[in-house]
Amino acid sequence: MKRQNSNLKKRLICGLLIIIVIITGLLSRKTILIPAITGDALYAVMMFLMIKFLLINTDYRKIGIISLSICFLIEFSQLYNAPWINQIRNNTFGALVLGHGFLWTDLLAYAVGTLACLLLSKNFRK
Rank of each mutant, 00 (worst) to 15 (best):
M1D: 12
M1V: 14
K2H: 13
K2S: 15
Q4C: 11
N5P: 10
N5Q: 15
N7Q: 14
L8P: 03
K9Q: 13
K9A: 14
K9N: 13
K10P: 02
K10V: 09
R11A: 09
R11F: 05
R11P: 03
R11E: 09
L12F: 12
L12P: 08
I13M: 09
C14G: 07
C14M: 13
L16K: 06
L17K: 03
I19C: 10
I20P: 00
I20S: 08
V21F: 04
V21W: 00
I22G: 02
T24K: 05
L26P: 03
L26N: 11
L26A: 07
L27Y: 11
S28R: 06
S28V: 08
S28F: 05
R29D: 05
R29G: 04
R29M: 07
K30M: 14
K30P: 10
K30Q: 14
T31H: 08
L33Y: 13
I34H: 00
I34P: 01
P35N: 06
A36D: 14
A36N: 14
A36H: 11
I37K: 10
I37W: 13
T38W: 01
T38L: 08
T38P: 03
G39A: 07
D40W: 03
D40T: 03
A41F: 03
A41Q: 00
Y43R: 03
Y43A: 11
Y43W: 10
Y43V: 06
A44N: 06
V45I: 13
V45R: 01
L49I: 01
L49V: 01
K52D: 11
F53S: 02
L55E: 06
I56F: 05
N57G: 08
T58W: 10
K62H: 13
G64I: 09
I65R: 12
I66C: 08
S67K: 05
S67Y: 04
L68R: 02
I70R: 02
C71A: 07
L73R: 02
L73M: 11
I74W: 02
I74N: 00
E75V: 02
E75Q: 03
F76V: 09
F76G: 05
S77M: 02
S77W: 00
Y80M: 02
A82S: 14
P83D: 11
W84H: 05
I85E: 03
N86F: 01
R89K: 05
R89H: 00
N90D: 15
N90C: 10
N90Q: 15
N91A: 07
T92S: 12
F93V: 15
F93W: 12
G94F: 01
A95E: 14
A95F: 09
V97E: 05
V97Q: 06
V97I: 15
L98R: 03
H100N: 15
G101D: 07
G101I: 00
G101T: 06
F102M: 04
L103Y: 07
L103S: 05
W104G: 09
W104E: 11
L107D: 05
L107N: 07
L108H: 02
L108W: 08
L108A: 07
A109E: 01
Y110W: 05
A111I: 09
A111C: 12
V112Y: 06
G113F: 02
A116K: 00
C117P: 04
C117N: 04
L118G: 09
L118M: 11
L118W: 01
L119W: 08
L120K: 03
S121L: 11
S121W: 10
K122Y: 11
K122G: 08
N123I: 13
N123V: 13
F124K: 10
R125N: 14
R125W: 07
